[in-house]
């Protein structure tokens, strides 16, 4: 129930901001963005000699911005966002690893404050997002229990080594385990370059944190990790009403 309520928060926020600032001259701009994401769960893997690593991915979006005034704007950026999860065994068990490429469609809605000069301006923005986990790919390596290399030792004993086997396959969602709905908060800081009155390029560093785990509650006890995602986004915005 709480999660459902959170879905409406961005809309409510947007409506409030729009209402408050309706006397200001509004301007729409839209564009395209792409970037690099770095995600990792907020919990450790919970299995001996294992660790989660920050895992790289990509993001693409279609930013739509509604200027509420000189310094304030509302921005929505529907797009595809990867929140990959990477795990590896450590110490004597290194060689076993897995990376899960998790693709989300996501709609962030943010309030932006910007300030600066004619050519350059800085901005900060914060808001909420809702998303859906649409697909996933599972890639990794594991010692193949049926594929051993045996080396006889001089003392008559044998040392066995398992060959590492790699896999890379489409992940089949498990309805019991996988929570595909995702919602959370995000904040970003960035730099705009106003190329001309119509086109603006920007670089943004963004951090988002899910409110809900990507695992359903299906056992006790359960760590239920959430995604923590950093992203570096490069984008270009075009002012739709400025034809200069």
């Amino acid at each position: 129930m709480k999660i459902v309520n959170r879905q409406f928060l961005p809309i409510l926020l947007a409506a409030l901001a729009t209402g408050c600032c309706s006397t200001l001259q509004a301007q729409f701009s839209e564009g395209i963005s792409a970037g690099y994401t770095l995600n990792q769960p907020d919990k450790d893997p919970g299995m001996a000699w294992s660790q989660h690593l920050p895992s790289g991915g990509f993001a693409i979006g279609i930013p739509v911005q509604y200027d509420l005034g000189k310094h304030l704007a509302l921005r929505a950026e529907p797009g595809l966002f990867q929140k990959n999860v990477s795990m590896e065994r450590t110490h004597d068990y290194s060689g076993t690893w897995e990376k899960k490429y998790n693709n989300y469609i996501q709609l962030p809605v943010m309030v932006q404050y910007r300030t600066g000069a004619r050519k350059f301006s800085g901005f900060i923005q914060a808001g909420l997002y809702a998303g859906y986990w649409i697909s996933s790919r599972q890639e990794g390596a594991v010692p193949d229990i049926y594929d051993l290399i045996d080396q006889p030792n001089p003392d008559g004993t044998t040392t066995s080594y398992f060959r590492i086997k790699q896999y890379n396959t489409k992940y089949s969602f498990n309805d019991v385990k996988d929570q595909r709905f995702d919602a959370g908060a995000l904040a970003g800081i960035g730099l705009n370059y106003h190329y001309n009155p119509r086109f603006t390029f920007y670089l943004e560093l963004r951090y988002s944190q899910s409110f809900n785990s990507f695992e359903k509650k299906y056992m006790t006890p359960q760590q239920r990790p959430v995604h923590q995602t950093g992203a570096t986004m490069l984008g270009c915005m075009m002012n739709l009403f400025n034809r200069k």
Binding site: L38, H52, P54, F120, I189, G190, L191, G230
Partner: peptide, 29 residues
Amino acid sequence: KLHNRYRIVICLILLVAGWQSCRKETGAP
């Protein structure tokens, strides 16, 4: 103003570097 721009860029780089160095590990049983 130029100074401020550099500060923002440096902040961005530091944030990325800090995030990259985070590792969450489970040790011995």
